[in-house]
Amino acid sequence: MSRTRIFAGLFLVVVAALLSLMLGPVSIDIGRGLFHPNSMPDGVVLWGERMPRTILAMLIGGGLAVAGTAFQALLQNPLADPYIIGVSGGAAVGGTIAATLLPFPSVGVPVLALAGAGISTFLLYRLSVDTSGRLRVYDLLLTGVIFNAFAGALILLLRAVLTPQRGIEVLGWLMGSLAMYRPGSWMVCGAGVVILSAFVFLLYKARAINAIALGRQEAMALGVDADRLQIQVFIAASMITGITVAFVGLIGFVGIVVPHAVRLVTGPDHTKVLPWSLLMGGVFLCLSDVVVRLGFRLYGSELPVGVFTALVGGPLFIHLLRHSHG
């Protein structure tokens, strides 16, 4: 049974990747493009445009779902998400500062977004941990909500000092689009290294993460150094969040919807939820990106993929929530 499941999963990944490589405003011959990288338009569009975008969609979608899974376990709450607890907001502020001070896009965006995610995570953690090192989950969730509003205000403040053109670019980036930002392939590689190494670490700790989802003291009773694991998981998940925001802005709901859907199939064991979230998050974002690329061709525009994931994710999330309560 689990073997069929693995084949089905890999099949979905391959299908999503192929669709993303094949479909777009310019129709290309994939076979020709694959072996003739310099051919116009097939090779150039495939290697210069669609390949990095597809890989990025897979990485970012997977990363968002993995970060969501990690935060949900840590906060013992299946509704937690990097976006909701304010880590994405911190990363967005960092990225916007980079866009204000430096050319846009630049390597400063991921660097400052990572810093922003790190700083906001640290602040959220400090504000939500009591004197004996216990994490007060509700404080954290509430602080996150407030922090998001504050981050939104900071971003609008920064935008007011930008030139109109730059302001539109920054806003487009923040809305969550895989198209606005054209990173070099080495930057995609860098994002991949960060996201995948954080994922590998989380998967390594998946059994301890199962325990910490039951609470700090219960995890300690089972033999987990809970305080340390909390910090490690926070760092790993906020690194992923920082990178995703730097590359594609604020894409909500992937971190909630994908782990939820995965759990309905695999059950809540994190040794399964983490790898499946990585794969299915990638598939979800890749397919969403194909839809926004094609859906608005008539109007000569592209919908930011974050708008699409929110449109699909919002209702789907409500449905999943009702479904999971039987």
């Binding site: 390594y204 301890a208 199962n210």
Partner: peptide, 15 residues
Amino acid sequence: EFASMAYVDRPGWSG
């Protein structure tokens, strides 16, 4: 799954 949580030291990638 609940009873198996005692194996917190095992890496998550190996069953």
